[in-house]
Structure formats: structure tokens, C-alpha cells
Simulated scan of single mutants.
Amino acid sequence: MGVLALVSAVGIVVDDRMLVGVPIWTKPFKFSVSFIAYGLSLAWMLSLLPRGRRTGWWAGTVITVASTVEMVLITLQVIRGTQSHFNQATPFDSAVFQLMGATVAVLWLSALVIAVLLLRARILDRAMAWAVRLSSLIALAGTAVGFLMVRPTPEQLAVDDSPIVGAHSVGVPDGGPSLPLTGWATTGGDLRIAHFFGMHALQLLPLLLIVLSALAARSARFPGLARLADERVRLRLTLTASAAYAATFVLLTWQALRGQALFAPDGTTLACAGAIVLLGGAAATLSLRTTTPVTSPTPTPTEEVTA
């Protein structure tokens, strides 16, 4: 994936072809970079398993193979100058897209196996254990958003034998005004936003805990960070962050399905976002509350003389 990211980056610069409103090599570039982060995170999580490592190894290997097949097919269609996703223009294009759908299903099921292994694993640091478990479940939900994209749009249903069946955008056609690099629609809903946000919980939630642990290690120099040295505080913050992340993921999915652009939310979306911020902030404040310190027992006179 690292090599393909470099090749795709060069392709974006030297190949002037456009596809669905963006440079034709944008899709393999984004997918390969995403798979780098996804693969590294899964590899690290599998290393935490005290049991079931062989099952985890096989699940990870299946994900690797499925990801490779997916990227080969995407790159093949780029070379041919046509869409990989939703393309039903010819029998060959349809077969490519169906094979891609099968690889995604296999990838999702393999990731589910890993998530179950992580849920059952006894990891020593409880905060890290829950960060890994909850992030893997949210990532599964984020991946599943992709299945919503294959539904035909009303415009496609109105046309017999539409060459394109399915779309990233909701309420507007794919290829319209979009954000740079990401290609997310700016005039309507876009399911890729929730898809991206959900999948990368796999990196962001454990990263948050790593930052909290690093801050806790500096509590001797900065007394204000002393509370983070308590594992119970880190656990509560992890659960709070995971709940807020999951709620934001649901909101982004709902916003896209209603045909709203990310930066053009209506009052309902803003109210929900505000509720997430307020409740998340309140929960984080409560999570940081001072815990009862453990005091050393007062030594007896005999112990003092002995000392």
C-alpha cells in the first residue's frame, strides 16, 4: 500500500485525466493511505492478544489478501480510465464491482472475528483494553456504511439499465462541487464522511489513550496532570470519548442520509452536535473528579522504634 500510495501520488501529478470530478488517481491514493493506517492499527491490536493469536493471524491474513484484491481492481479500472465503484456499464465492469463487493464482505467478516477476539481478550491495562475493543466495533460500523452506498438512487431507478448503480452522495449526483482531496460533496450529503470517520476510530481512540498515558507519566513534573495517573480516571475518559465518538459517527451518517452537506447543517443537526459536545464535556469533567487517595497506615510505636 505504501508503494501504491507513492505511485498514485505521481499519477495525480502527471496524469491529467479526470473521473467523477477529481483526478483519476485520487481514489487509489486515498484508499492505499487509508489501508496503511488500518493495517498498522490492526497489526498492533493483534499483538495485544494473549490468546487466539492463530485465529487472529488468519483473520489478519484474510484482510490483507482482500485489501490487496480490492486495490488491484481499483487500480485496474483507473488504468482503463473508468469507474471501479457502482460501475455496471459492461459485463466486465459489473463483474469487477461484484468482486469488489465480495472482497469487502470478506474483509468485514474478518474484522468482525478480530473484534470478537479483542472483546474476549484480557488486556492488563483496562483503559487500553476498552479503547481497543470499542474502537474496533466503531470501525466495523464505519465499514458497514459502505453497504449503504450500493443502493440505487431515485434518478438511477428512473432509468432502464443505468450504467452506474449506487452513489457516494445523497441528494446530489456524484462528481459535483466537492472538498479538495477528499472529494466529499459540498452541496449535498456524502456517506464517505461517516465511513471515513467510523473506520478511523481504530487509530484515533487508542491514540487518545496513548496521549493520556504520556501525560500521566509527566505528572511528577506537572501536578495538574496527577489525576491522569489513576487508571480509573483514564478508563472513564476512554469510555466517555468512545461514547462521544460513536454518537458523532451516528450523527454524520444521519446527516448524510438526509442529503445535508457536512458544512451546511440544519438546526436539528446543530442541536444534536451541541448535545454531544455538552454531554461529552460534562461526562469528561465528571471523569476527572478526584478519587479517594489511598493513605498509608499510621505506624505503631514498635514499628517506629524498629525503624
Rank of each mutant, 00 (worst) to 15 (best):
Leu112Phe: 15
Ile114Asn: 04
Ala115Tyr: 11
Leu117Pro: 14
Leu117Val: 14
Arg120Gln: 15
Ala121Ser: 15
Arg122His: 14
Arg126Asn: 04
Arg126Val: 13
Ala127Ser: 13
Met128Asp: 12
Met128Pro: 01
Ala129Trp: 09
Ala131Met: 12
Arg133His: 07
Arg133Phe: 02
Arg133Ser: 03
Ser135Leu: 10
Ala139Trp: 07
Thr143Glu: 00
Thr143Phe: 12
Ala144Lys: 01
Ala144His: 01
Gly146Gln: 02
Phe147His: 00
Leu148Thr: 13
Met149Ala: 12
Arg151Met: 07
Pro152Gln: 01
Glu155Lys: 12
Leu157Met: 14
Val159Ser: 12
Asp161Asn: 15
Pro163Glu: 05
Ile164Val: 15
His168Gly: 00
His168Trp: 07
His168Thr: 00
Val170Phe: 04
Val170Trp: 05
Val170Thr: 11
Gly171Ser: 06
Pro173Thr: 03
Gly176Cys: 06
Pro177Met: 07
Pro177Asp: 02
Ser178Arg: 13
Leu179Gly: 13
Pro180Val: 13
Pro180Gly: 10
Pro180Ile: 11
Leu181Glu: 07
Trp184Cys: 12
Trp184Arg: 12
Trp184Lys: 10
Ala185Pro: 02
Leu191Asn: 13
Arg192Asp: 04
Ile193Val: 14
His195Ile: 00
Met199Arg: 00
Met199Asn: 09
Met199Gln: 06
